[in-house]
Amino acid sequence: MTAMVKAEGVRKRFGRLEVLKGINLEVQLGQVMCILGPSGSGKTTFIRCINHLEKINGGRLWVDGELVGYRQVADKLHELPDREVARKRTEIGMVFQRFNLFGHMTALENVIEAPVRVKKVAKDDAVSEGKRLLDSVGLSDKYDEYPSRLSGGQQQRVAIARALAMHPKLMLFDEPTSALDPELVGEVLDAMRRLANEGMTMVVVTHEMGFAREVGDIAVFMDDGVVIESGDPREVLVNPQHERTRSFLSKVL
């Protein structure tokens, strides 16, 4: 069985600053991986590399057995053209910290935009599928609202529905609850929990220890561009082996 996400020695530089210094990770089909760590540890950069929003400088990164952003011919790597990169991204959903809903479109229009324009799904089919997805995240009364009229929690749930509308085989979450008021965090985590229970493969950058412990199959602690430790969340988060993990957890708990 090939891993859904496999990283080997992934390195990323911004100018002279090396933010990923050789990441080795593996996520199997149906697993939920939660990445924790202080800000600036490289965790957000890492998941942005998975759908090629950032180009890696070294190592190899595979999604479902295919190299991300490159094609290997013999022992040479060829950059993929724009169109190919875009096509591969349709299989990977992403949810952002700041929601990034399209401001000039209603909730439903946000959800059906990519299926209609990219996958060329018939508009009627996309609409009924979009409504079903919005219903599933508890927004059946918000189809025609513009994002500016929705709370942060509602916006993030629309964003989740928008990503799911492309039927991705992998979902990436970049601190999905960090920009939310505390009382709205629960509704977004509930939607994610349901998704995990349905068997979606997920990589989640988060500060929500409870979610990581309860839903996660693997917890990864990153600091300063390297993975400090990873494993069963109930081990890593409850009984960390590393001093840096321990001091981080003592600060956030």
Binding site: R89, M94, N100, R117, V118, M166
Partner: peptide
């Protein structure tokens, strides 16, 4: 973030610009 969200949904550069 609007561009990134569109790209993450598989929209090409020109489609993102236009839509």
């Amino acid at each position: 973030g609007q561009t990134e969200a569109a790209q993450s949904l598989g929209m090409t550069r020109l489609l993102t610009m236009r839509r």
